[in-house]
Computed example of a mutant assay.
Amino acid sequence: MVSRPLLALALIAALAPGATLASGPEKKKGGGLTFIQLNTLTSTVIRPDGRRGVLTVETGIDVPNEKLHAKAEMLVPRLRAAYVQSLQIYASGMNPNSAPNADQLAVQLQRETDRVMGQKGARLLLGTMLMN
């Protein structure tokens, strides 16, 4: 019978406002609150030895406008599809002995961002680019 009051006291303590200290402060997601991280994009390339390789590009978009940010989050699958298609076209035209041109690729992917979003305001950010 003594366990019921203890259980009730434990429940009240757990629901108290100060009881959430164990979880710590809210973590900020990588890139900030306006940043949307996308999955890594991949495309096949022809390596200098004639074999196939893989070009991987990490991307994300920064959307400071709240309304536009909500729209961008809903359009992530369409953005990703547009990026992959653009990356495949870019990779198919690459010279096997050259490295990817990040500036040219950024311009192409930013153009796709603006097209899919239907307006400007979302800024494409490129991360790591690897060729294997």
Rank of each mutant, 00 (worst) to 15 (best):
M1D: 11
M1H: 12
S3E: 15
P5A: 14
P5M: 14
L6A: 12
A10W: 10
A10T: 06
I12C: 15
A13L: 15
A16V: 08
P17Y: 14
G18D: 13
A19G: 14
A19Y: 11
A19M: 12
L21Y: 09
A22D: 08
K27G: 00
K29D: 14
T34H: 10
I36K: 05
Q37H: 09
N39S: 14
L41E: 02
T42K: 07
T44Y: 03
I46M: 10
P48R: 12
D49W: 13
G50V: 10
R52Y: 12
L55V: 00
G60L: 10
V63I: 13
V63R: 01
P64L: 07
H69K: 11
K71M: 13
E73G: 13
E73C: 09
L75I: 07
L75M: 15
L75T: 00
V76Y: 03
L79Y: 07
A82V: 06
V84A: 11
Q85N: 14
S86K: 11
Q88D: 12
Q88Y: 02
A91T: 01
M94F: 01
N95Q: 13
P100H: 04
L105P: 06
A106F: 00
A106K: 02
Q108L: 15
Q108C: 04
Q108G: 02
R111P: 02
E112W: 08
E112K: 10
D114F: 07
R115V: 07
V116P: 01
M117V: 03
M117E: 04
L124M: 15
L125F: 07
L126Q: 06
L126E: 00
T128P: 09
M131P: 01
